[in-house]
Nucleic acid binder design. Structure first.
Lengths: 346, 346
DNA sequence: CTGTTAGCGCATTCAA
DNA sequence: TTGAATGCGCTAACAG
């Protein structure tokens, strides 16, 4: 049904080798036969079958992108960065989103293989040692973004320092009761950022000689609804925090929503700091840790494209910058809030 | 380097036909040899090379998704819907984002082909007649979402009616000067939604015997920054509108930002209505037209999967519901705003 | 400069 | 029940 290289060759009255040569500029072709081939190609609306090409070349011209937490805005912005550079290349993108552990395992077991993809970009997921062995055995160029491993090129953040800076900002404003809402510290997907940000939070408190109060730390928060719930828990404490730091902007927005529902004034009654600086953070005037998401997507593919071209170069590790962006959701705690428990407001 | 079916066959001491049979359950195999093959597969960590399969089968097990305006939140929510069903299937997703006209053309010319994909999902793009001929010639199952063509299965909205309802809502609140910020009416990608929503806007005005004032209509707005600019233009008119309807929530959020920058009270001084009901709309308490984006992604792939299975069924057309969600950015216009020009505020 | 051929990895048909 | 041979569409090496 679809035209093949043989159809083109027959129509142009040449051999298939010549057609292939014309299409790929792989060897000099007489200008006249070249034109004959080109017209035949145009008339038949011929485009080479990628499966044939791939099988023959042993390359797929395809990049796999593995994305957990696809519902989270930050991952989308990274993907946008990826697409912005891919659109200009002739690579195809295979998108894999992972929502569950079995899915994660299946993808990491079956995807990193020759004949399937030429390179793999993994967001926010730390491969296990078994995954790593497979990646190396199949010799698949692989780049990690927002994750790290000594044997793999990757883009990482200093989450500990960034979180510490964020919490120090709150401390400097005068806050003493600072809550932290995090994902599970032992992330089921094997990411460390939740744990690292918690560590930064603790370090900031310690450096200021403030106690680390377990009831101020809520973990296992995933998604907007969880965020609302954890916020309620924190604000309903007998001695509620005057500021809340969250591990993502998505969650910080949920905190802001709850504050609005409770008629709490932000930042007057409650300060909020997020993490990511997604596009919405600006709209919401959220104080947050910027991590240049779009840019990280761009750098990620570029690093991968590089690795594909130079597979034997030692894996390079790049630190992505972070920056505390102070907007309008943080201020000094008001006196009243210290005295009046939230429960009395309802 | 990577194990092939021959390696497995050799290791198991059988022929490649047997290995293939075991892997695909394509014919009965003696239980004992079956086990031999399975152990060999496990020991070699063998996964069939997709290019080989595809070439042999003439199917790719891949779905192409073409997405223009990838920077717009509504498209992302659709994609999320798509991924939520694809994750449970064994199809791969090839993602194509289109940002420019040449890119659009290249993709529509080269992607819809056997050997490349088994089915195509196109968002918000109306194929030309030439595109259509190619799609039919190559017999590629194709589904349109937020677009329509009689010869193709598609999911469409009644944009005219939805926009009319939105503007009627403003009229009922007492607004007489209603601005509309749209994309180009003649969308370069060949979409009609901008034009249709404009038509709904006009119909609502006409039905209420209100004049259609060209200066209240700003077109060519794409992206947040454009949105801010167009908003400024409208609000700086000698006789500025008291309400603004936008063709997307992204733009409506830009209007809200400008209003905040200008210290305009929303909805007291200015009412705003968006379109899409993206996740953020709820956060911003935006009155908007909901179009069930996530759901449209789900229905889109499901329709495509259906079409792949039953290629000869007549193309079915489904209308997606819309609903006006009234939140807190619309109210009756205040008296003062009628009298005081915005310029005097600055 | 160009036609022919081998082979990429697999599913499948044909023999056995 | 199974092994061997064929062909999917293409690129590249080989031979002219």
């Amino acid at each position: 049904m679809a035209a093949t290289i043989h159809d083109v060759a027959r129509k142009a009255g040449v051999g298939i080798g010549t057609v292939s040569s014309v299409l790929n500029n792989s060897r000099p072709v007489n200008e006249k036969t070249r034109q004959k081939v080109l017209t035949a190609v145009a008339e038949l609306d011929f485009v080479p079958n990628p499966s044939g090409r791939r099988l023959s070349l042993g390359k797929t011209h395809t990049i796999g992108v593995v994305i957990p937490y696809f519902t989270i805005a930050s991952q989308i912005e990274r993907l946008r960065g990826v697409m912005s550079v891919i659109a200009g290349s002739d690579y195809d993108i295979n998108l894999f989103t992972v929502e569950t552990i079995p899915q994660r395992n299946k993808i990491l077991q079956t995807v990193p293989r020759r004949g399937r993809i030429d390179g793999l970009l993994i967001f926010s997921l730390n491969p296990t040692e078994a995954d790593l062995r497979r990646i190396h055995r199949h010799n698949i160029p692989t780049v990690l973004v927002e994750a790290s491993h000594p044997d793999l090129p990757h883009l990482f953040l200093d989450d500990v320092a960034a979180a510490q800076t964020a919490v120090e900002h709150l401390i400097q404003l005068g806050h003493r009761k600072i809550g932290y809402i995090s994902d599970y510290l032992d992330d089921p997907f094997g990411s460390f950022f939740s744990r690292n940000r918690y560590q930064g939070y603790c370090q900031a408190l310690k450096a200021a000689d403030l106690p680390i109060q377990p009831e101020y730390h809520r973990q296992g928060c995933f998604g907007r609804e969880d965020g609302r719930e954890k916020t309620f828990e924190l604000l309903n404490l007998p001695n509620p925090p005057t500021a809340i730091f969250t591990y993502s902007d998505d969650i910080a927005l949920a905190v802001l929503e709850v504050a609005r529902d409770l008629n709490l004034n932000v930042p007057g009654d409650l300060s909020v700091v997020g993490y990511d600086d997604i596009e919405l953070a600006n709209f919401a005037q959220l104080t947050t840790v910027r991590q240049y998401l779009f840019e990280s997507g761009i750098q990620g593919v570029e690093l991968l494209l590089d690795t594909i071209e130079h597979p034997d170069a030692p894996p390079s590790h790049h630190q992505l910058p972070t920056e505390l962006i102070v907007r309008r959701t943080t201020a000094s705690p008001s006196q009243s809030n210290d005295a009046v428990s939230l429960k009395n407001r309802d």
